[in-house]
Amino acid sequence: MTTLGAIGTPKALEPKGFDTLVREQHRRLLAYALALTRREDVAEDLVQDALLIAHRDLGKFDAARDFGAWVRGIVRMKYLEWTRSRRTERMTESQLEDLDARHREWDRAAEEGRGDALEALRLCREELGEHIAETLDLFYAGRHSCADIAQRLQVSEVVVRKRLQRARDVLGDCLQKRLDASHGS
């Protein structure tokens, strides 16, 4: 992960520098916003708003901090605003802290050269068994409900939910191992 220190002080940040940071960070920021909202359109809006604020307030940014973590904080603030305006249920404080903690771990892994979480997860995804991978694809890429998937695959909804949970367990372990293994190698 590129930090502000790697590209200069905030005041020295030129538009090109900001573009580079956005290009490097936007997918992780979207992953963060998607974890919060589970809605692609809302996640894009939150991240876009946060990056516009980041661009406006770049002069106030502390160069000692991580750019991604800083913008994640703005995304989080925007998320809380969104839940208030929509009166929608939101994550608890402890869930938000857990989510931030996981992203900080992945930030550290990237900084220490242990790999990028998204790329590691992509590789883990390729190792999944056929049934689990198919269920996962229908849920995430196909955006089908569990009931729809159950109907398509001719299995019960409980089986679909179990497969998805199994997939997350396997992928979580694999991700952890990949990022740790990179550290060991």
Partner: peptide
């Protein structure tokens, strides 16, 4: 979904984006 799964869920959704 477990507490840790939220972060993973976000990554999976991002991976699946067009």
């Amino acid at each position: 979904m477990d507490r840790d799964d939220f972060a993973l869920d976000g990554l999976l959704r991002e991976l699946a984006r067009d």
